[in-house]
Amino acid sequence: MRGRTPWVVVPLAAVGVAYVALPFAALLQRAPWTSLLDEVRRPVVTDALQLSVTTALAATAFSLVIGIPLAWVLARTSIPGRSSVRALVTLPMVLPPVVGGAALLFAFGRRGLLGGPVYDTTGLLLPFSAWGVVAANTFVAMPFLVLTVESGLRAADTRYEDAAATLGASRWTIFRRVTVPNAAPSIITGALLCWARALGEFGATVTFAGNLQGRTQTMPLAVFLALESDRDAAIALSLVLIAVSLAVLVPLRDRWLAG
């Protein structure tokens, strides 16, 4: 294959790499290396990191539970309006996250479409809580899982499922024992993408869940506020976020290469 490299591709790819690498290099160049450890140990950072990691995990878990069945319906059924459903489900990817956050507030807020009656009867409130962060993350990040799993399901060989059916397996058993394991690579990739997107979520979170250290202040929110007052702290926070993201994205890349 190496002999067949179309050479025009190489410089363009190099431009692509440089374009992404340069801002990160600039960030590293501005980093307060000497005080980095102190910056990272501050409670505001550890609180935000812990909240970010756990809420992103929870959002990924919710996305898996809802998203895999959704991807299956999109990939394997021919329900009417399927393409509209797909468009709807991917809408959060193109919507500015802040608009998503406002929409969530209209739906699940104290005066929201669903949130209003729920609050009036039970006193339960999603905004301004860690669950609100999870809700915002799920809304924004789930499409990444759904689309990835859907394309995985489309590419999968359905004859295994046919064989399982002829052997007498129930539909649920087939889904659980054949379909999902077959789609495992795409599910793992989708889950990682979903988690990474949730980890970096800003707009929907701040609009829907607000910002309070230890309760709803995730890393991106802490970075944003630190930028207003203390650039060194903001860069230090960003580096932590980048390090955590890379720890996830590198295995993700390996999986793609392996696949």
Partner: peptide, 14 residues
């Protein structure tokens, strides 16, 4: 405090 909003308009909006 329930939320420390990043700017005055987002506070106002809520």
């Amino acid at each position: 405090i329930d939320t420390d909003e990043p700017d005055v308009r987002s506070l106002l909006t809520k």
